[in-house]
Write a protein that binds this DNA or RNA. Structure first.
Lengths: 223, 223
DNA sequence: GGCACGCCTTGATTTAAGTCAACCTGGCCT
DNA sequence: AGGCCAGGTTGACTTAAATCAAGGCGTGCC
């Protein structure tokens, strides 16, 4: 664990509220390791003994429905925590976690962290706020899934990925397209067709995983 | 505000962790009032100065999409809080709230309650747990909306409404059908057709808002 | 090299659900 | 009573997306 890792970890919202001393204590309870592509971190239904922070790479959180079909619930990128909700539940992981590429993770002990929370009210408040935001985000996602068409969801996703100052405006898809499709609740074929149609309208150019936006405003209108 | 109200309020998860004395203090900051059918409690975008608890009746939480379409996000029944997430955000209500029938509400001051939280860690922990559960619930709803058909969602909703020990197994729909349809992300016509089809298969009997289940196991298989 | 495999694309077809429209019913109003 | 309106149902039609099927293309491996 190098100093860049430590900086990243400290900036994550769960630990940002800690005093320097508290943070050092937490560090002593963190273990860092790397998983290879496609390795599984935990299975849906495993006891939630730990929660995690992504240092580099990408973690895919998936849920398997009773029917056997599976749905990508989240793609966790560097600088973000995951599985912390399961910690408060004190139960089991409601999803399984697999890495999409070689991924460095920090693993934190749930019991230890719960103890820490009990002794730090401010931290609690920040957490409450963060979790509200997450709820807000999920509510928005439900919006998207019910009130918007597949094409609108694709455009919304692309615009969301767009970095602020990019000139010309473009994005690089950092995960396979079929993963994006699942996240948007559509089939890979449909995603492919939507992109083809946008390309036909000259609104975007697609070269493999590079997407250039020719008319951001027009796209924004469509979403 | 009678003793039944007070009991209900105290059993709600937000206040359950309070000591008797703290609870009495909170009571002094609660105001109770009744809204008539279709009255609006707050609008989407209003500053989130209060959060609420339903003593009797039903509150509909709706979100209006940029396109102008609207979607029922939640139906809050007696014994449940709502708008507490907005309190932690410290911003504005992301939904509007309207009552579906004459409804008694308890209104709590956000600033006061935040102060209380700062002085009570246990309460924080309970809240964190509850909010995790809510997140869990929303994740499940996203499941439903993406990998289940409309018919499956309808069946799932009906089974969820089914009281434990009802013989014969039946439910009464306590809200208008078009509201249920919106909540399930389908059109009223589709809901009507799904129910008609289930009736055709002898799986249920429908008499207005009374629905009798003829074969719960078969339904469970279909969901 | 040549073959297999994963990922993506494209076309043809099917299906689920939305839309549009007509109609029925019961409650409510003057 | 008569008329009106909201809520619900049903039918015909349209549309969006899933499904099925084929083929392209790059990568890795024997």
């Amino acid at each position: 664990m190098d100093s860049a890792d430590i900086k990243l970890l400290k900036e994550g919202y769960l630990l940002a509220a800690l005093s320097h001393q508290e943070f050092e204590e937490v560090l002593a309870h963190v273990s860092v390791f790397t998983l290879m592509q496609n390795e599984c971190l935990f299975d849906q239904g495993d006891p939630a003994t730990h929660f995690f922070f992504v240092l580099s790479g990408t973690v895919k959180l998936c849920r398997i429905a009773p029917s056997g079909e599976e749905k990508v619930m989240d793609l966790v990128r560097p600088g973000h925590y995951f599985a912390e909700a399961a910690m408060f539940m004190g139960g089991r992981y409601p999803v399984y976690a697999r890495v999409l590429e070689p991924t460095r993770l920090a693993e934190l002990d749930s019991k230890y962290f719960l103890g820490l929370l009990r002794s730090n009210t401010d931290l609690c408040m920040r957490l409450l706020s963060k979790m509200s935001q997450r709820i807000h985000g999920l509510v928005n996602e439900i919006d998207n899934l019910t009130l918007q068409s597949g094409a609108q969801r694709v455009i919304g996703y692309l615009l969301q990925q767009l970095p602020e100052g990019a000139v010309p405006p473009c994005v690089r898809l950092t995960v396979p397209k079929h993963v994006i499709a699942s996240r948007l609740g559509i089939q890979p074929e449909t995603l492919s067709r939507v992109l083809a149609k946008l390309r036909g309208k000259q609104l975007i150019d697609v070269h493999d995983d590079q997407i250039v936006f020719n008319d951001v405003d027009a796209l924004r209108c469509l979403s």
